[in-house]
Simulated assay, not measured.
Amino acid sequence: MRRKDREIKEFNEILQVILDCDSLVLGLNDGEFPYLVPLNFGIDIEDGQLYIYFHCANEGKKLDLIKKNHRASFEMDHAHQLVLNDEKMSCTMEYESVTGKGFIEIVSEDKKIKGLKILMKHYHVSEFPFSLKPVKNTTVFRLKVIELKGKRRKVSVK
């Protein structure tokens, strides 16, 4: 990271940025160009390991790419605020962001509901009664995060 003064170093601070975001962009390998897709997500920490959960239909490009190559990257951001400086005739943007990479795993059928509950919890719905019919037509997958970086730009007001 070039701007070390903007780096978020503490895991719990990065985690708070993640919790404040409502979507992320998942980057998958698609040959000559990356395939980017915005997704809803949920997080879980198991034995100190961060996992990000997602879902999709049981077929489609995203799932085909995951099956070909389980490596992925992601980005999420929030807290955007344009900051104008009339005196200097300049502007900048405040933000908080998280980027990372890892390996995607398809969640087994017997743990699918648990994964969907993790997704719903991120959006503050702790007990959602899932209909089993659409769950059968849903694939739940998770990304085992192996690299995580946080960045923040806050402008001090003088």
Rank of each mutant, 00 (worst) to 15 (best):
S108G: 13
D110P: 00
S23D: 11
I66F: 05
L36V: 13
I146R: 08
E109T: 09
D86E: 15
F130C: 01
L24V: 06
K117W: 08
H55T: 01
L116Y: 02
K117Q: 14
Q16M: 08
G31H: 03
N69I: 11
I118D: 05
I146K: 10
K101M: 09
S90L: 12
N69R: 04
K67I: 03
L119I: 13
Q16C: 06
F128D: 00
M120C: 06
L19R: 15
M89G: 12
D77M: 10
D44F: 09
G31E: 11
G42L: 10
S23Y: 14
H70A: 04
H122M: 04
C21F: 06
E109R: 08
D30Q: 09
I66T: 08
G48D: 08
E109I: 12
A57C: 05
P34E: 15
D30I: 07
N85P: 06
M89C: 14
M89T: 14
L24K: 09
D64Y: 00
Y53P: 01
H70F: 00
L50H: 05
Q16T: 00
V17K: 08
N29K: 15
K62M: 11
D22A: 02
L26M: 14
Y35W: 08
L39S: 10
L65Y: 01
K62E: 05
Y95T: 07
K117L: 10
L39T: 12
Q16K: 14
K117V: 03
L36E: 04
Q49I: 12
E96D: 10
I113F: 07
V125C: 08
L143V: 02
F103N: 01
Q16R: 11
F33D: 09
Y123K: 05
K88M: 15
G115H: 09
K61G: 03
